[in-house]
């Protein structure tokens, strides 16, 4: 059913394209840093924090979440891009199953996201957040499953879209609310009840929460809000369902 060599070469292609498009690489690395420095230092003194973490430290897990969100979602633009510029047909006539192509795109989007998230993780000690090797590995695992969940959501949506304009419109309506309702910039419990409800169907919210568990263990009122096992179960379930749906849609559409 799956052709591993094909998956390998699809992933290799996405990485080559990513590293050749300098602008894209610079944007995805610079954006989180701008958020961290500008938004973080703008709010750091405005918000009176009683406990262990300051505001810049508080938003780091959220900014890692944001980076994964943007990288994952915008990596799925390659599906629309390939469709528009014909390359998708080269893949569709190859003797591999549609699921192989979906997995190739899923793995490349996830890997690129985790790569970006790991770079950002290097900032943590600079702003006074220290963690050990085991925490690093845990972060790595959580970043991977969050990236998987978001990439599969992106793939599912992208497989319906036929133009790059459509992709940008739709994705912005998905990406920005997902970011603002993720608990990245303020705790979810501070939101009105209706918005809290939306947060609790947002996979990124659980992702950011799982990052807070590791990066802000003693953050007081700014630390994680849900039990870690709830985060993990929700993200894994979401990723599985979305991957399945994306594969299904891909199989049907040509």
């Amino acid at each position: 059913m799956l052709s591993y060599k094909a998956i390998y070469v699809i992933v290799l292609r996405e990485f080559k394209r990513f590293f050749r498009q300098r602008g894209r690489m610079v944007t995805t690395i610079a954006r989180p840093l701008i958020w961290l420095v500008i938004v973080g230092s703008g709010f750091v003194n405005l918000i009176d924090v009683d406990t262990g973490a300051n505001y810049i430290q508080f938003i780091l897990p959220g900014i890692i979440g944001m980076t994964i969100l943007f990288t994952s979602v915008f990596s799925t633009i390659s599906v629309v891009w390939d469709r528009e510029f014909g390359f998708l047909r080269e893949m569709l006539v190859a003797p591999v199953s549609r699921v192989t192509i979906v997995f190739g795109k899923l793995i490349s989007g996830t890997a690129l996201s985790v790569f970006q998230g790991t770079i950002l993780l290097a900032v943590a000690p600079v702003i006074g957040l220290n963690f050990g090797l085991s925490d690093f590995f845990l972060m790595f695992i959580f970043m991977t499953i969050v990236a998987l969940a978001i990439t599969s959501l992106g793939l599912f949506v992208a497989s319906f879209l036929t133009s790059l304009e459509g992709f940008n419109v739709i994705m912005n309506f998905i990406v920005l609310p997902m970011f603002f309702l993720s608990g990245a910039l303020y705790p979810v419990e501070n939101l009105p009840a209706a918005l809290q409800l939306l947060s609790y169907i947002n996979p990124l919210c659980y992702g950011v929460d799982s990052f807070k568990h590791i990066l802000l263990p003693g953050g007081g009122s700014l630390s994680a809000e849900l039990p870690l096992y709830v985060d993990v179960i929700f993200i894994l379930t979401f990723a599985t369902v979305m991957t399945f749906l994306a594969a299904l849609v891909f199989e049907k559409r040509k």
């Binding site: 292609r13 080559k16 394209r17 050749r20 498009q21 510029f85 014909g86 390359f87 047909r89 080269e90 006539v93």
Partner: peptide, 13 residues
């Protein structure tokens, strides 16, 4: 083997 009407190469590669 198939050669399409439109170009289906990856221009970045």
């Amino acid at each position: 083997g198939l050669v399409f009407q439109e170009v289906t190469l990856d221009n970045e590669l």
